[in-house]
Nucleic acid binder design. Sequence first.
DNA 1: CAACTATCGGGACTATCGTTCCACTTTCTA
DNA 2: TAGAAAGTGGAACGATAGTCCCGATAGTTG
Lengths: 220, 220
Amino acid sequence: MTTADGHRAAGGVALNEASSDTKNAPAVTDGRRVKGERRRRALIEATVRVIARDGAAGVTHRTVAREAELPTTATTYYFSSIDALLTAALTQCMEEDSARVEALAAGPGDATGKRRALALLMAEILTSPGHLLAEFELYLLAARRPEQRAATRRWKEALAAFARELTDDPVRVKLFTRAYDGLLLQALLDDEPPTADEFEDLLRELLPDAEADADGKSPG
Amino acid sequence: MTTADGHRAAGGVALNEASSDTKNAPAVTDGRRVKGERRRRALIEATVRVIARDGAAGVTHRTVAREAELPTTATTYYFSSIDALLTAALTQCMEEDSARVEALAAGPGDATGKRRALALLMAEILTSPGHLLAEFELYLLAARRPEQRAATRRWKEALAAFARELTDDPVRVKLFTRAYDGLLLQALLDDEPPTADEFEDLLRELLPDAEADADGKSPG
DNA sequence: CAACTATCGGGACTATCGTTCCACTTTCTA
DNA sequence: TAGAAAGTGGAACGATAGTCCCGATAGTTG
């Protein structure tokens, strides 16, 4: 078996560096693979930056490699195609976003505090509109391929988990899960980005405090 | 330096909003221009179909021309660049969408009826997910260029006008305006599209019927 | 009719794309 | 230390992109 061919075929779909790596644990100690993994990660991050700057159409082997300050062939070595690169970038972004929202949901504070924390996060996200724009482009890419929806499903479930911290109403949870992305998308079209206070106002309407009349849910 | 808008006359921004096919435009009596205007329109529609099928990355002079069953040079003749073609497609889409929502807002029926009508429209839109996907891709394109936001501003104002038919609360209006697109975007990522009933549930939460509120703002 | 203008469309130029090849270096294993 | 495995990167191939050129055609005007 030729060396390059075999590795390339295996590396094309290797998107996992997570816990599913149990059977190949000793390979991680290989200095060559460690360095390779670092390059692979650098390419993914460079991809997101390229999309943020020039859009998904600007993603080519050459532009990504230049952004990562690597030779052109590095992209073809670590990713079997441009598509694999975009898929990896989407998975990475959804993972990061989900982790952030999950941390907020599981973190301390009552409903009001969590709402405030999310509003602050949204405002912070909008300080780099390019990155958000890149995520939306990758998002649309996933909408075309059902096999890529594992990443977006993960994100939706993270949103739902956050909403369930603030309400028991399933319709409210569904509404929040489906409306959240729209709030950020519309903000991208504003002439000036909304403030955290504005987001907090909207979130309060979306996920209001439990009413006094039909209470039954007390914190703690 | 795209000064070569060519001899494409002043048709660059001439966006006819007429829903019916009025061909007796006062400015254009020249038979050549009439035919040309028909081609130009065919190219825009072909562009949307190409994006719906292959994404924005699939839009080239050649693919659009083939989709419209016209020679390659037709695209370069009527649009100074690919960018101009995409801009025209975005403007056209936003115009159509705005007109539909405005018709609903200005139409007959009470709040409940209008909410139901919008839910039906949303469900109908999702029967051609490709077209919706195309609109979102164009939407993101506009997010990168402030000079193109006239089209999206028009759309946002149409949404706000609809919301104001159902509520006087400015926060509610803002929330609806910013959440609506998200509802459709998330629906694209579902394994099966939501029904009109589901949308109606969400819209009822988003824009509830006016109720006597203890907050001091009472209708009447 | 002819002159003129708008439209049409085949072809070609250059640039850049995705991808592959192959010689090379580094790292691990025995 | 030898040899295999993994990674590296310059060069180039064919395909296709955007765009321009320029003659041909059709409608308008006088």
